[in-house]
Amino acid sequence: MTLIEARGLAIGHGGQPILKGVDLSLRAGKVLCLLGPNGVGKTTLFRTLLGLIPALSGTLALGEEPITRLPRHRIAAHLAYVPQAQDLPFAYVAQDIVLMGRSAALGPYSSPSAQDVQLAQAAMQRLGIAHLGARDMTRLSGGQRQMVLIARALAQGAPAIVMDEPTASLDLANRRRIGDLIRVLAGEGKGIILSTHDPDQAAELADEVLLLGPGGVLASGPVQQTMTASALSTLYGTPIRRETLSEGAIHFRALPGLPSDD
């Protein structure tokens, strides 16, 4: 089942496109990884997919429906968002944040019911963070906060999840945990689209990758065929070598030397 389908998308703020001709498709049970240098427009693309800013041209459908025809709560029922960082003005506890994921399923004048609280708790148990429920969000570690936000996305019940650099600023153990979790969730049928600055992680987690260069898509498709040394060298503007490790995993190494001018 196709969860997100974009064709010829031009995106940007204030009428100025920063990416053009983006084709993208996310299917249930698949992980799609966005790679690209800083400032290329990954977050802008996510914001477009989430319906936070309109696409400048092209078509974007969530499930069967064009996104322009979906009211906010139906977008939320289809696609959950795991932001990279939160700036909370108040000291919410983790369980408050997870419970907020139930909002799209509530009527406009309703507050969460006992059943919503149970669903939120179940999502936290599922990720093994039930014990963090009463803890202040601002006192959690980066990895714990990320788990809470993923639990919120699960509580939201959407079949597709957008994760903006979910492992940025996490230590090795937490990167591993989040990475494993992403694969498990995909195994259970979620469609996940995420961005990362780590090609190795993309190669390990993703079924497909989308390489975003300045202005548009450089290449896209299955990991093995798309993540070539030349494509990544072009993407990051520096020579990169692809190595195959003994277990069959691939690893990318930026070679020493000055970056090329173009």
């Binding site: 977008i75 029922a77 968002y81 932001p83 907020m100 909002s103 309703s110």
Partner: peptide, 18 residues
Amino acid sequence: WRIGLLSLGDDEARSLGV
């Protein structure tokens, strides 16, 4: 309930269906 979601910030609140 919804007014509380505004404190998360506009993008997050919208992504939750507000």
